[in-house]
């Protein structure tokens, strides 16, 4: 059951990605509605898949790398839908949903074995750590998409070569605002996730900050990049192109740290 619904979700996201691309280029309103429906279907199927699996393993989807990837994709879709509902930027789907599909696709190749988690305080900290970090990552993925759209749009306005994307994409102000808002949500959550992760490490009888360089350094990098973008905006008015580049760089670091970390 969880496998069937996983496949339905994977396939829905693939079709939705194609739909959003078609909409981006050919502007067929029907296609975008269809893609929206497919995303909703995908989310529904994925929720069932996660629910069924969790009831079988007896714990939430945050132990193995497969589960974590699944859960990340789930949060990305939820946050994407919330953003879409608030901002009405249909073309964002063309940048976010393919990412969701890729995360899901990668998780296909990860071990499906269920992880073991002791019934204890440890489990609480693990849950907190993974959930908070994943919402943070998902928010960063939206900032990444908004950042790419910003750079495309900015390039056109700056070089005065106004292609079709100039008319398709939202204004620089909206994209910059979206970038800032999602980082404002994502950064504190990610920070909390980072802290609860350290507590979880301690509960596992490891050092509070186990200087495992391979694992920790990328996370520190991620934190620094988003920290610069976040505090930079407030302190010195870092915005626009630099903020967009920061959001893109940050997400590349997220992907790197994600695979090193899990």
């Amino acid at each position: 059951m969880d496998k069937i619904s996983f496949n339905i979700a994977l396939f829905s996201y693939l079709l939705a990605s194609l739909g959003y691309f078609v909409y981006l280029v050919y502007r067929r309103p029907l296609v975008s509605t269809l893609a929206g429906g497919l995303v909703a279907l995908g989310l529904f199927a994925q929720t069932i898949s996660i629910g069924v699996r969790s009831s079988m393993t007896g714990h939430g989807p945050y132990t193995t790398s497969y589960e974590v990837a699944m859960f990340l994709a789930w949060f990305m879709v939820v946050i994407y839908l919330l953003t879409e509902w608030k901002y009405k930027i249909k073309d964002l789907g063309a940048f976010v949903i393919p990412l969701v599909f890729l995360v899901m696709l990668v998780s296909v190749f990860l071990s499906k074995d269920a992880g073991l988690v002791p019934e204890s305080e440890v489990r609480f900290w693990l849950t907190m750590h993974r959930t908070l970090s994943l919402i943070g990552y998902a928010a960063f993925s939206i900032a990444f998409a908004a950042g790419i759209m910003y750079l495309i749009q900015e390039h056109q306005v700056k070089t005065k070569k106004l292609g079709i994307m100039y008319f398709r994409m939202p204004s620089l102000e909206v994209l910059d605002d979206l970038n800032f808002k999602v980082i404002t949500i994502g950064f504190p959550l990610f920070t909390l996730g980072f802290m609860t992760g350290s507590i979880w490490n301690t509960k596992m009888d490891q050092a509070f900050f186990s200087w495992d360089l391979a694992k920790t350094m990328p996370m520190v990098m991620v934190w620094l990049i988003y920290g610069l973008v976040f505090f930079g905006r407030m302190a010195t008015g870092l915005r626009g192109k630099k903020a967009a580049q920061g959001a893109i760089l940050g997400f590349v670091a997220v992907i790197g740290s994600f695979f090193l970390h899990i």
């Binding site: 749009q153 306005v157 100039y166 939202p170 204004s171 620089l172 102000e173 909206v174």
Partner: peptide, 9 residues
């Protein structure tokens, strides 16, 4: 049009 692509509203 350009103004609206830079500032939206």
């Amino acid at each position: 049009e350009l103004a609206k692509k830079i500032f939206e509203d």
